[in-house]
C-alpha cells in the first residue's frame, strides 16, 4: 500500500497532522521512528454474515479470507481488511485504488442488506517502528501487546492515552500501525513524541 502522489482523490489530499509540519529529523540509527502513512483510502463495510449473498460477494472482492477472525486483519493484494465487529470491517487501500474498489464492492453488494461508507478522512494512520515501540505503547495502553500474545496480523481497538485507536501489528519486527480519528491525531502525535522522548527518536516525513 505504498502512497502514490499522482492520483490522489480530493478526499485524501490533506492530513490531520499537517499543522505539525512533520519533517525528517533525528538520528538515522534511531531506536524509534515515527511517521504518518498518508493517502490511504478507508471504507467501513457492514453486513450480516448469516446472509449468503453478502458472504459470496465480499469473498469475491476481498478474498476467501473474509471475514477475518475477531481482532485480526489480513492483506489481500493491495487491500487490507480489519475486523471491527461481528458485522463490521474496515477496508484500507491505496487512495488511488479506492474508487475502483468502492465501485466494485457497491455493485457486488447491491442486492444484499449491507452498507459501504467511505471514511477516508475520518482517521489517519501513524506508524511507530523500532525496538522500543512496544515500551512506548505500554505507557498509555492497558492491553498486553507482548509479541507472544499480540502477533503479526493481530489488531485491537483500544484506548491509547486518551484517544481511541485501532492498533495493528503489521510485521514480526516491532512495527505497529495506529489508526486514529482525525480530530485526535494531533493530540496522539504529541503524546507519542513525548512518550518517545526518552529514547533515540527519529521523525520521518
Amino acid at each position: 500500500m505504498a502512497s502514490n502522489d499522482k492520483t490522489i482523490g480530493p478526499a485524501t489530499k490533506t492530513s490531520p497532522l499537517e499543522t505539525k509540519l512533520i519533517s525528517n529529523k533525528g538520528p538515522t540509527d534511531a531506536e524509534i521512528t515515527l511517521k504518518e502513512n498518508k493517502h490511504i483510502g478507508k471504507m467501513i463495510l457492514r453486513g450480516s454474515l448469516s446472509e449468503k449473498k453478502f458472504i459470496t460477494s465480499t469473498k469475491k472482492h476481498l478474498s476467501q479470507q473474509f471475514p477475518a477472525s475477531p481482532n485480526s486483519f489480513y492483506d489481500h493484494t493491495k487491500v487490507r481488511v480489519i475486523w471491527l465487529g461481528p458485522d463490521e470491517w474496515l477496508i484500507l487501500t491505496d487512495a488511488a485504488e479506492l474508487n475502483t474498489l468502492k465501485d466494485d464492492l457497491t455493485r457486488a453488494l447491491i442486492k444484499s442488506h449491507s452498507a459501504l461508507v467511505d471514511v477516508s478522512d475520518n482517521s489517519t494512520i501513524i506508524e511507530i517502528k523500532g525496538r522500543y515501540s512496544r515500551e512506548i505503547l505500554m505507557k498509555g495502553c492497558s492491553l498486553d501487546i507482548h509479541p507472544s500474545v499480540f502477533q503479526t496480523g493481530c489488531s485491537a481497538q483500544i484506548d491509547l492515552g486518551l484517544a481511541n485507536i485501532i492498533l495493528l501489528k503489521t510485521a514480526d519486527e516491532p512495527i505497529y500501525q495506529i489508526i486514529v480519528r482525525a480530530s485526535f491525531a494531533s493530540y496522539l502525535w504529541d503524546w507519542l513524541v513525548d512518550a518517545a522522548h526518552e529514547f533515540n527518536v527519529r521523525i520521518e516525513n
Partner: peptide, 9 residues
C-alpha cells in the same frame, strides 16, 4: 469478542 479488558473501556 475482544477478551479481557479493563472496565474503563
Amino acid at each position: 469478542w475482544c477478551g479481557f479488558r479493563d472496565d474503563a473501556e
